[in-house]
Design a protein around this nucleic acid. Structure first.
Lengths: 212, 212
DNA sequence: TTTATAAAACCGACTAGACGGTTTGTAAAG
DNA sequence: CTTTACAAACCGTCTAGTCGGTTTTATAAA
């Protein structure tokens, strides 16, 4: 195997190990020795690929962020033609994805924050760009932000082990966040209030009272 | 000064120091020596008041939780008569309070999670009770949960330093979350669609471009 | 193809310091 | 005089990072 591949394999193994450790033992247990043990590499090997622990965290953060960015672009390509607010839809779907993925980017975020809060600058900047895009396409920007915040709340609270919600509830709530017809903004004319069948087909309309 | 007061003063100083450290340097930098340095106590003094580091975290968690529970009860007493969903209103207001308070309970939560994820059991249980109460009083339970999640998202994302939102935006979004008239549930008749002036009076209609 | 040399990847023992916690000593309160 | 609150030195362990040495790959001259 050539050097480039060998390096990449090792770096990959180290980062995978790091995620496994964080997920299993918590961010506080992430040590260089633990990474070496878990990945099968020696400490020296790990230190050859990453000069400091901070470098590990940074690489981990970028890798996970990249993963979800990829998901994001794919999703965006799919819905950009059909959705009135593709940026919001994409963000909501990506957050849902992060919430249901065990190798969550969120774990890396927590670890980074614990070790070095400065590292949060990178994800914050990217987030800011996305928020701007969501705003620009929205008829009711604040409502769009609140839908985004709702998704974030579901993700982070479950990440913190603070969410008393079951898995199916989680899914249902995300589905509702994604369903544009359920979120009627202030300056947007209300569509006829029949439940449109979205990703989840639910017939919960029964007898809806009309607007007073 | 008598012994009881002396002890309490020391315990207090230690916990204040702990919060300051977490807020300034991140949860990863919270050590017993740091607490001793920051509080002016000696390490021995700290260890006399708290037998272990976990005891410090636990006390910190309980103190912060207690603080917001007090806020919560006061708020609840105020709105329980007038609001149709006092539990939700109280939770939203409490989360807003936590978000605007620098000595946030949330910081303690993060620290606890890093050090010992088991400590999260206590806040999770209390949270579950509140969620149940919010559900029970709601005409549209899922919408209520999503409003709660939205508040949580605003709180946690800003806590993580991930929120690109300004302070006034934050306030506006919380105000909207709290304004029942803006959240028309599926089984709840919609009130006339005029913007009700809430805690913040905003005339933001101006001229927003309509859908293409 | 073989051989010489350099460079990169990797190993594991080691170090300095930080950490949680203990022990010993002392002053104040009861 | 006993107990409680606190101080300060101390202990064993763990951690991030270093270092000298070994193996593997890359380059290239013979």
């Amino acid at each position: 195997m050539d050097n480039a591949s060998r390096s990449e394999r090792s770096r990959n193994a180290a980062l995978e190990a790091a995620i496994a450790i964080i997920a299993r033992d918590g961010p506080g247990r992430l040590t260089l020795d633990a990474i070496a043990r878990e990945s099968g590499l020696s400490k020296g090997g790990v230190m050859h690929q990453f000069r400091t622990k901070e470098a590990v965290l940074k690489a981990l953060l970028e890798r996970q962020l990249g993963h979800f960015e990829e998901f994001s672009t794919r999703y965006m390509a799919k819905v950009s033609a059909t959705s009135a607010n593709p940026n919001l839809a994409t963000q909501l779907a990506t957050i849902r994805e992060a919430a249901s993925s065990p190798n969550s980017a969120a774990l890396a975020l927590v670890a980074a924050m614990v070790e070095n809060p400065r590292l949060m600058a990178l994800p914050r900047e990217r987030e800011a760009e996305r928020m701007a895009a969501i705003r620009d396409e929205a008829t009711d920007p604040d409502l769009a932000m609140l839908r985004w915040a709702g998704a974030m709340g579901l993700l982070l609270s479950s990440l913190f082990g603070m969410s008393p919600l079951g898995k199916e509830e989680h899914q249902r709530l995300f589905a509702r966040l994604l369903d544009d017809s359920q979120w009627v903004g202030l300056t947007q004319p209300a569509p006829p209030r029949t439940v449109k069948s979205g990703t989840v087909a639910v017939a919960k309309a029964a007898s809806r009272p009309k607007r007073a």
